[in-house]
Design a protein around this nucleic acid. Structure first.
Lengths: 113, 113
DNA sequence: CAGAATCCGAAATGATACTG
DNA sequence: CAGTATCATTTCGGATTCTG
């Protein structure tokens, strides 16, 4: 979604939060990282259809928002690991009830996953 | 945000829910209607910066998703009232924890909305 | 491997004017 | 009042190519 915060323009906590998770792939990134840290390529394979550029951009925004942590290991070949920060973990928890709502009301009672 | 559902393409409940509330003004609309039903003009005044066209479009999408109810009163001058459906009420409740997260972590401990 | 750079198209949003 | 119609713009996301 849009790149930059609009500090002070938020009307309530919900639209502030929406600004953080509004990107097309962000909740899926959160969800993947929730299970375990991922390397760039692994993350990419878990998000079918995302391009490198867009994935990079979304990760950068999440990084700026303090949601994901980017750790560069100085090796060859390069290795970069993405993981959730404590803030990211708390965001994921806050998303739980919304996820339940979506499962029950949009997906139509799919078992779970 | 995007207008049409992508049935079956959802990976989890969260991105299904995101598809419903992803429009730029939707959570603000939900929030306004959560307090009381609104007429079109009243809603517009509560969302500074929204244009009639965009507000109409977002309301139509929420209507199609079963979130808001549109009630036309046959009077002159015309009166149209928007309110939350039971599904909309439940969505708002599901958004509560996300809103709390945003208030605490993005807005920076603002007393409340 | 993990990206940066560039070009591009589609979609979402917006401004303005008009209408039943 | 509550929209619709048109036109313009912005923003986002994607394809492709190149690099340390």
């Amino acid at each position: 979604m849009r790149t930059m915060r609009r500090p002070g323009s938020y009307v309530c906590g919900i639209d502030a939060a929406m600004d953080v998770i509004g990107g097309k792939w962000k909740v899926l990134i959160l969800w993947a990282l929730h299970e375990r840290p991922h390397r760039f390529g692994a993350l990419r394979r878990e998000l079918p259809g995302v391009t490198e550029k867009v994935l990079t951009a979304q990760l950068r925004e999440l990084e700026l928002d303090g949601i994901v942590n980017r750790e560069v290991h100085d090796e060859v070949p390069p290795r970069v690991e993405y993981s959730l920060t404590p803030l990211g973990v708390s965001l994921n928890e806050a998303l739980a009830s919304l996820g339940a709502w979506g499962r029950e009301n949009i997906l139509g009672h799919v078992p779970h996953h």
